[in-house]
Amino acid sequence: MASSTHGRSVPKHQAVSLHIGLNSVDPAHYGGWSGELSACEFDANDMAAIAKVQGMKATVLLTKKGTRAKVLSSIRAAAKALKSGDLFFLSYSGHGGQVPDVTGDEDDKQDETWCLYDAQLIDDELYHELGRFRAGVRIVVLSDSCHSGTVTRDLPATVAIVPTAQPSQRPKLMPRSVGLRTYRDNQAFYDRLQREVAKAAGDGVIDPDQALANVAVSSRLTGVVRNFKAAAVLISGCQDNQTSMDGAHNGAFTEQLLAVWNNGGFKGSYASFHARIRARLPPTQSPNLFALGAAGALMAQQPFSV
């Protein structure tokens, strides 16, 4: 549909969204672990409801449909279709995991992952896929999951990884033993994925964990994806040394996001949206805010505006 300005037809921006929610994973890939959760499918459906009200074309992938092939295919289709000014909204609710980083500067680095149904999606891959979007495309990513790579790598033994939870809650954290077993059984697969991304990105790629930890220094971001043309805002459910909690009806992060959003009643920027959500969560779970590309203008916009 188009509007008219001084006799000229001005096309409306396109907006598409992808919402992934996994209440379990395939134990055949994860060493016998199914990772049962309760609220992730609710989270995905609730995010899709926001997208539809805002006029987006929404795709929802729940549990068994949340495979690597379907997720990557959906992201790539959006990258191919969207042009400058268009919007891509991506949400994930499920377990966070880890694989050893085989392309970074330190041998003991761990790459963060989303635990998709049939295998993990490595953060290097995600950022590389976002780098496929055209200049001027706006990207919003919400991740209600644990970033367990840094959690299990850096916390001293005296610090508890899992915060105090309500009876209805459980951490969205793939246990370290499961992560090690999954990587051991599929090492060639995960190592190949990382090397393919590094090769596609070119020499000198910087580890995404390191780049995002220094998000204020724009020169570091170019190492994630060398030619990142789009503008992306990413809000994660917790800090790297914390755990995102599941719930009976929504994950803790998504529950507070919905409360702040207030059925569209929230008025403000992505920055204030993040701050309001963070203020409603306990000190044990503090959502993080990242940016990729020239995201200043996007950060100032009303959340989910097409």
Rank of each mutant, 00 (worst) to 15 (best):
D101I: 04
V71C: 08
A77Q: 15
F88S: 06
D107Q: 12
S91D: 02
L72R: 15
E112D: 13
A77E: 15
L62R: 13
L82S: 01
L82W: 04
A58H: 04
Q110L: 15
G55V: 07
R76G: 03
G96C: 06
F89E: 02
V53I: 14
D105K: 15
A78W: 05
A69P: 02
L82G: 00
C115A: 15
L90H: 06
T63W: 09
T59Q: 15
K52S: 11
L72M: 13
L61Q: 04
K83D: 14
K83R: 13
A69M: 10
Y92C: 10
S84T: 06
F89N: 01
Q98H: 13
F89G: 04
V102R: 11
D107K: 14
S91E: 05
I75R: 08
K80G: 07
Q110K: 14
A69K: 13
K65D: 15
E106F: 13
I75F: 01
A77H: 11
V60I: 11
F88H: 01
K64N: 13
G85W: 00
S73P: 02
L116C: 09
L82F: 05
A78I: 08
Q98W: 11
D101L: 02
V71E: 06
S74N: 12
T59I: 15
R68H: 10
F88I: 01
R76Y: 05
I50Q: 06
V99W: 03
G85C: 00
T67D: 09
A51S: 15
K52V: 12
H95Q: 12
A81H: 09
V53L: 11
F88N: 00
R76P: 00
V71D: 02
K80F: 02
K52E: 15
Y92E: 05
I75K: 06
E112H: 10
I75H: 07
L61K: 05
G66Y: 08
G94C: 12
G104N: 12
E112S: 08
Q98S: 13
F89T: 05
Y92Q: 07
H95R: 03
K64S: 11
R68I: 05
M56F: 14
P100G: 04
T59F: 03
D111Q: 13
D108C: 02
D108N: 15
V53M: 14
G85T: 00
L61V: 07
D111I: 10
V102T: 14
G104Y: 09
S93W: 08
G97K: 09
D86Y: 03
D111Y: 08
K70I: 00
L61H: 08
S84Y: 03
W114N: 00
V102S: 10
L61R: 00
Q54T: 06
A51W: 09
L87M: 09
A48V: 12
M56A: 11
L87F: 14
L90V: 01
H95Y: 12
S91W: 10
A79S: 12
S93H: 12
D101R: 02
D86A: 06
Q98A: 09
K109Y: 15
T63M: 04
K52D: 11
A78N: 05
A77S: 14
